[in-house]
Simulated scan of single mutants.
Amino acid sequence: MVVTAIIPARFASTRFPGKPLADLMGKPMIQWVYERTMQAEVVNRVIVATDDRRIYDAVQTFGGEAVMTRSDHPTGTDRLAEVASSLKCDLIVNVQGDEPLIDPAMIDAAVRPLLNDPAIAMGTLKTPIRDSRECLSPHVVKVVTDQNDFALYFSRSLIPFPRDFYEEMEANPLKVGAFKHIGLYVYRRDFLIDYPRLPSTPLERTESLEQLRALEHGYRIKVVTTDLISHGVDTPEDLDRVRGLLQSS
């Protein structure tokens, strides 16, 4: 199968304008994401999808591949679908443009179930929550899965809720058995093209989590467990943290 990774990248950001072009050890952040994605074993091609000429030019400058998209897409998935409609491939990987330390092995882990089972339309990742603050943070999305590792639900609330040992959570968050969702997605190309056309759903709107649309319309999402950690950049302070990790490595 042919696997294409697409990295959506917008210049506009409420908390961090120009984030994809922020300098990180002498390179724009989007270059770190691109180069790490290229290292994934299962990926055949990497494309940055952007609506900003500055990002497009930066990707061209470091030798990457970029495409310009419409600027009126409400979500990154819509931007992916626009690009996917012109591609000849089997699987599309959505790699977030604010993950400069993304481990290529995480991409491989998410993709392989779809390579092995043609019935799976969509896949993603989860990792155990080790910090009690993340258990309670609405900014950390949690996921619960069935016995075959298909998603049952995604939520900004703590799921599952540890009724019998909630007070112990701060001392031992791993005892809760909660998992953090990692926002890396794999789609079959045809499914991705159709996905934005699905009507928005009540749970999706309530939680403001787009992946719930797929579940509410009856599609299954394979969720692979990983112990690898991602370090997303939402603010300039996050970028300083990532810079410190690179300097100490």
Rank of each mutant, 00 (worst) to 15 (best):
P104V: 01
I107H: 04
A214D: 10
V59P: 13
P199F: 06
D72R: 04
Q60D: 11
K19P: 06
D108E: 06
V3D: 11
S249F: 08
A105Q: 13
D234P: 00
P162E: 12
D117M: 05
S137M: 03
G63Q: 14
Y195S: 01
T201V: 10
D108S: 02
D98I: 00
A22D: 06
I47P: 14
F150C: 07
Q211R: 10
F11Q: 09
K126P: 02
R54G: 01
G244W: 09
S200L: 08
G76W: 05
A5G: 08
K19G: 01
N148H: 15
M25L: 11
R133D: 13
S208F: 02
N172Y: 13
L228R: 12
L203W: 15
G63V: 09
R197N: 12
V2L: 14
I129R: 02
I7M: 07
G18N: 04
V46S: 12
Y34P: 13
L209Y: 11
F179K: 11
T145M: 10
A66W: 11
N44K: 08
L91K: 08
H181R: 09
L174Y: 07
R54I: 00
Y195Q: 03
A9K: 03
T124R: 01
A9F: 07
L115G: 10
E134V: 01
S86M: 10
Y34N: 05
A9N: 10
V242R: 05
R188I: 06
V140A: 08
A119L: 04
D57I: 00
D227I: 00
E134P: 01
A81I: 04
E41S: 08
R205A: 12
D117N: 15
L91E: 04
R189I: 01
A40E: 07
T37P: 11
I129G: 04
P199A: 11
Q147G: 14
V141S: 06
I30T: 03
R241D: 13
E204R: 15
Q31S: 04
P173C: 10
Y56R: 09
G232S: 08
G123C: 03
K180Q: 14
L91W: 09
G97E: 04
T226G: 01
R10T: 03
A110E: 01
C89G: 06
N148W: 15
S200Y: 04
V224I: 12
D51Q: 10
A66F: 07
P173G: 06
L174H: 09
L21V: 07
A49Y: 05
V3R: 06
P202A: 01
C135S: 11
L115Y: 13
D234T: 02
V43Y: 03
I6P: 13
Y34C: 02
V33M: 02
V83F: 03
T206P: 00
A105M: 09
P160G: 09
L203C: 07
V242I: 05
K88M: 07
F62K: 15
K19M: 07
K88W: 14
E204V: 04
L136K: 12
L21E: 10
S155L: 12
E170K: 12
L21D: 08
P138R: 09
L114Y: 09
S249N: 05
E210T: 06
N116F: 00
R112S: 02
D149E: 15
S155F: 14
T226P: 12
K88T: 14
D103S: 04
D23S: 11
T50C: 02
C135G: 10
